[in-house]
Structures are given as structure tokens and as C-alpha cells.
Amino acid sequence: MSADHPVVRFLPCGDGAVTVEFGTKIDPALSARVLALDAILDAERPAGFIEAVPTYRSLMVQFDPLAFDYEAFESRVRALVAGLDPAPKPGRRWKVPVMYGGKFGIDLEATAERHGLTPSQLIDKHAAPAYRVYMIGFMPGFTYLGGLDPAIATPRRLDPRPHTPAGIISIGGIQALIGGQAMPSGWHILGQTPVRTFMAGRDPAFLTAAGDEIVFVPTPADRWDALDRAAAAGEPVAELVTP
């Protein structure tokens, strides 16, 4: 599907939601349109609108079927689509400290070897890009990133690990991830961050949002304890570069 001629599909999700799909691929222009539509709906809030969930390439809109004028919504979105800006809006940029390798990144060495790299070369490649947050999904604070160097794209593990700790920095296929909570995972773990993308009771409870940028900062392992304590006390630990 061409990003230059947007065609949306309205995928029914029962009587209480619809997914507005801009395409099927991971693509910054599709993501930009998703977030642009999300912003407009958030401002317009048609009667019966409950919430919208932006993902890589689509926006799921949830509503109360008793109060929502579905036909009017579909017409409105069709009218909006052509005017949605495919250029990603500059978002906030976060510098996220990462402890790579060792007990923090148990798959670093094997992943490096797989790509014919030394661990430090893999770290350089992983920490080089400014990643774009495509979506927060799955479970609280799970931050899905686009912009991984294709040279280090790595198919997911065949045997997912039943338990991985919070804050894992991992890659799966062409995606990169900041884990939000302890969860099972089939991704390759390169490191760990003390940053809590989600912390109930902190203000704000969530640090990252779709459209933000993430830069990983390789950080010595001996700084873990201090940063982890600060993060546990509610400090962001991630540095906001552009507010």
C-alpha cells in the first residue's frame, strides 16, 4: 500500500469498536497518520466516544454503541484521511540509560555472534538510532520502537522465556522494545534499563507515549543500583531532551 495515497479500511470490532487501518506495514508515514487522526478525535470527542488506541498502522476507536453515530464517524474519518500529515511530528526525546550485556542483557553475546559482531559493536549499532515510539501496548508501559538497524534485525526466539524482568531492552524481528513489567518474552534481551516506563502512583504514571523519540545511552553496570533506587523512588531517570 502506498503511503502517498492513503486508503483506509474500517475493520469492525463488534458493536463497540472499529479499527481504522491505514496499512499493513511498519512505516513512519502510516504511524504519523494514525497519530494525526488520534489527535483530531481526541479534540473532537464525538458523542459516545470512549477512547482510541493508536498502534503501528491503525487506530482502534472504542465507543458506546447506544450513543455513537457510527455512519457519521466513518464519513468524518473518510473526509479527514487525505489531509492527515504523513510526516512524523517531532515528539519529545528521551535519553534512556541502558546497562548492556552480562546479567542485564543475557542475549547480547549470542546475538552479536549471530550477526558476526563483537558485543560492543552490537551495542554501538543498537544505541545509534533515535528510535520512534510507534505504540505502547500489550501490557502497561511496553514501549514498541521503530528504527532498528536492519543489519541487527533478529527473528524471535522459538522458545519464549516464561519470565523476564521489568525494564528489559530487547529486539524481535525489526522491532525494538522497552519492557514495562516482568512478563514472558520471546525477544532477545540486550540490556536492561532502571527506567520505569510505567509506575502506578507516580505523576506521570507513564513516561513514554506514541510519537516520542528514544535514544539509548550505554551506561556502566555499576551505576545500576543508584539509578534503580532513584527510579524506585519515582524519579524518571530517563532524561527529557526536548520538552
Binding site: G14, I26, T55, S58, L59, M60, F138
Partner: peptide, 11 residues
């Protein structure tokens, strides 16, 4: 496999 998208209740 699809590129992950939103899941409605009852999906």
C-alpha cells in the same frame, strides 16, 4: 502474524 494492533473486548 499481523503487525500488532488493538484488541477489543470479546475479540
Amino acid at each position: 502474524n499481523i503487525v500488532s494492533d488493538g484488541i477489543p473486548t470479546g475479540a
